[in-house]
């Protein structure tokens, strides 16, 4: 028996919009810890890890660990039928091949049940090692989205370099090149507008902009994005989800052939 009630149902809608273009099918795992997902894109270049902690739900009942194979596009279609202010409850049962999404209006005067078919998905769960990153950049998520969009109109790849001067985003394409430097900036009233750079050592890595631009669909979930870089590792682009958890995107670098 599974029953997860989320007052701020819009969070779940936003999560689906953020990942459905990157990953088409995935297993949602439900345990005492929370509602989670780990999945790679079809080319195995990017990985998304989502966690919505059980404490963040208004009501969280998960009698035993349950994995639900879901077509994310279909789930997104159903969640789009929920109003922006609706409370969403996810209901499931062992041994059934469906999950139900219940939408309640805030005034409780409209209640909708959408039942969706589950599917069997063979997915490998990867171990993500704890890592010390050479550089961690925290910046406004909208600014990062703007940079990725702008550079994506010029080139296909972005070189992200962190030095003590700041974080540099560089691309080159047929029409020319572009270079954007963001300096550390903490002298603002709103901490979410700050750019903070923690650097242990300089690092420079190249990534496909197509994936970065896909990750920025999570911008509506958080005002701040955290980008963690190490030369031996995929970059981590993390959006915190209110008090509930996170969505983390891992992207394998382009490396010299």
């Amino acid at each position: 028996m599974l029953e997860l009630r989320l007052i701020q149902g819009s969070l779940l809608k936003k999560v689906l919009e953020a990942i459905k273009d990157l990953v088409t099918e995935a297993n949602f795992d439900c345990s005492a810890t929370g509602f989670s997902l780990q999945a790679m894109d079809s080319s195995h270049v990017a990985l998304v890890a989502l966690l919505l902690r059980s404490e963040g739900f208004d009501h969280y009942r998960c009698d035993r660990n349950l994995s639900m194979g879901i077509n994310l596009n279909n789930m997104s279609k159903m969640l789009r039928c929920a109003g922006p202010e609706d409370i969403i409850t996810i209901k499931g049962d062992d041994g059934t091949d469906t999950v139900t999404f219940m939408f309640e209006s805030q005034k409780q005067d409209k209640i909708s049940d959408f039942e969706m078919k589950l599917m069997d998905i063979d997915s490998e769960h990867l171990g993500i090692p704890d890592a010390e990153y050479q550089a961690i950049v925290r910046m406004p998520s909208a600014e990062f989205a703007r940079i990725c969009k702008d550079l994506g109109s010029i080139g296909d790849t972005v070189v992200i370099s962190v030095t003590k001067e700041g974080v540099k985003f560089f691309t080159r394409g047929d029409v020319g090149s572009a270079n954007i430097v963001c300096r550390q900036n903490t002298s603002v009233d709103k901490p979410e507008d700050s750019t903070v750079i923690e650097m242990n050592e300089p690092v420079s890595l190249t990534f496909a902009l197509r994936y970065m631009n896909s990750f920025t669909k999570a911008t509506t979930l958080s005002e701040v994005v955290t980008i963690s870089l190490s030369s031996e590792l995929p970059v981590v682009v993390e959006y915190k989800i209110a008090e509930m958890g996170y969505i983390r995107f891992y992207l394998a670098p382009k490396i010299e052939d």
């Binding site: 990985l47 995929p234 394998a252 010299e256």
Partner: peptide
């Protein structure tokens, strides 16, 4: 020329 690496090169099944 830069070649795209894969996530599975860095993270493996436990």
């Amino acid at each position: 020329v830069n070649k795209q690496s894969q996530i599975t090169t860095f993270f493996t099944s436990p």
